[in-house]
Write a protein that binds this DNA or RNA. Structure first.
Lengths: 325, 325
DNA sequence: TTGTATGCGTTATCAG
DNA sequence: CTGATAACGCATACAA
């Protein structure tokens, strides 16, 4: 690869001059500017961003740590985060923690070593103090770590309330909420709070099914639903923590000849593509994934530029009614 | 962030010595080694990988360019590529081209500028010569660019043959293949070759429906299927280019009261999670995504280490029978 | 308008 | 066993 030095020699100037035309700094005669451009073209020159990063003290790389990109919600989030990051001139270093503490920790170290200018954390297996000493622009998704670390989430409590009320309004007498590991300190757990509070207030029987499958294994959800039906055959409403889980529920209901929505109603979460792809199409709580992604990137960007940012960034959710209710 | 210099001062040695203990090079007394370790611990030191990259001429970063990570096939591929890359000490820089030529080109430039040690290309909107002058370890997914650029794919022709024969064996009289843009120079197009050849050989009516939606928009597939049914109401077998398309087909069939598999049979492609999540569960051609990902990383790794690699790397596919046939 | 010298954080080549 | 010093590719303060 050609370096700035090669260009300088070929153009008959010094590296300083080349650097100047490269960065449009200071005055340069049109003649030399032309010569330099010419040399750059001839040698197919491209500035070494590693060297630039070193001298500028800025890499424009963002780290993104999430449980796994192989999940409809996170893959969409990743897509949009990368999209907006790119629009701001940032590159994304992708990290799949698989909700493994060791991996998450290693990734954080790795990202620091690689001098990323910010980290977007959507995997939360560690304790608070592991993050606060990071001393790096940080934005958290779906978890509030401390007063001064901004986080983005959608309104989980509202989502839980909407879903639960909707099931009850539709006539459900005994409802279940199926969710991930409640031990992880996630804001998504608010959905369960809302579920319980709403069911309680409206005096409807309810049960929460928690999976401690720490790795998001889509295939495993079937068992969860099966077990739920075994323990509670009279369930007539399911609120699922994600559309994937809801799809599993639909499948199991089908296998067990439970009519949807006549005998049992199902409501999902996220409104990922799968929600409108399954049959019957899924009623679900829509998270504004694109808006959240844009917000996340903006919050990182502002922090990098030393601008003030608000800590709490909670976006609204909406209920999308389809065919499973 | 503490630098090697800070460590040196605090430990009362020179940077050379610190660097030595850091890299376990040459002899160092146990005493100074201890002192250095101590200083590193106290200052929470972490080597600057940017500086290292510069002097070593090696970043251990891999670029991954694909149409969009927001698709079940690519998100799984991305997951496993990152997984195996990490295991080999590489980091992944993620690029979603959205099948946009301009973006794809910009990403390639960007990755070169960032001195990545290899590029994994799964987006193919450009002409051959744009890639061959890259002068960088390169592995291509699902496209053969030239004699000496290794590519990985699954056996698309076999997949097309298996699917087509299966539909015909099951009694279909008029079958359709729904696929993406055949103008992109993809090996996936071999499926269509196989589809046509097989249908022809077995004297079964067939039609290929091609979408030129260049961005993979999951929602758009419905229309495609609807149009197919409008033009060819007597279709009784569909071979879909991906499970997502197949899921759309299932949905449309349901809406049109076409019984699956009695009146119409559907076979998907990929065996992504969605295949076993929809109802009825999808018969599909399984691509060995994990194996392909591992292979891709191995091929990049070997090239980086100047080892010989084989150009053609075609992995077998299998038919997974479920409920739509 | 252009050039010289210095430094970014690290490794590597010499000496000692 | 340890220390100067040059070098990686580039940007910039200071001169000219």
């Amino acid at each position: 690869m050609a370096t700035i030095k090669d260009i300088a020699e070929r153009a008959g100037v010094t590296v300083t001059t080349v650097s100047r035309v490269l960065n449009n700094r200071g005055y340069i005669s049109e003649a030399t500017r032309e010569k330099v451009y010419q040399a750059m073209k001839e040698l197919d020159y491209q500035p070494n961003e590693i060297a630039r990063s070193l001298v500028r003290g800025k890499t424009n790389i963002l780290g993104l740590i999430l449980p796994t990109v192989d999940h409809p919600f996170f893959s969409k989030l990743t897509f949009f985060i990368e999209y907006y990051a790119y629009a701001h001139g940032y590159k994304i270093m992708l990290c799949n923690s698989q909700l493994d503490q060791k991996k998450e920790k290693e990734y954080i170290e790795m990202l620091r070593g690689n001098q990323v200018n910010g980290i977007i954390m959507a995997s939360h297996t560690l304790e608070v103090d592991e993050y606060i000493n990071l001393n790096l622009p940080l934005v958290t998704f779906d978890r509030q770590i401390s007063e001064n670390i901004p986080f983005v989430s959608s309104d989980n409590y509202l989502g839980g309330t909407l879903a639960t009320n909707f099931l009850i309004d539709k006539g459900c007498k005994k409802i279940a909420y199926i969710c991930g590991n409640l031990n992880l300190n996630l804001l998504a757990n608010r959905r369960n709070d809302a579920f319980i509070a709403t069911a309680h207030a409206r005096k409807v029987k309810h049960v929460t099914v928690e999976t401690n499958i720490n790795v998001l294994d889509v295939g495993q959800y079937d068992r969860l639903v099966l077990e739920l039906f075994r323990k509670h055959p009279d369930i007539d409403g399911i609120f699922a923590g994600s559309d994937v889980v809801a799809a599993s529920a639909i499948k199991v209901c089908h296998q067990q000849q439970r009519e949807i929505p006549e005998e049992i109603k199902i409501i999902g979460y996220d409104d990922s593509d799968i929600a409108s792809l399954v049959t019957p199409q899924l009623t679900t709580i829509r998270q504004p994934i694109e808006e959240m992604s844009e917000l996340i990137v903006n919050l990182i960007h502002k922090q990098i530029n030393k601008e003030e940012v608000s800590t709490e960034n909670i976006l609204p959710v909406t209920l999308v009614e389809r065919e499973t209710t």
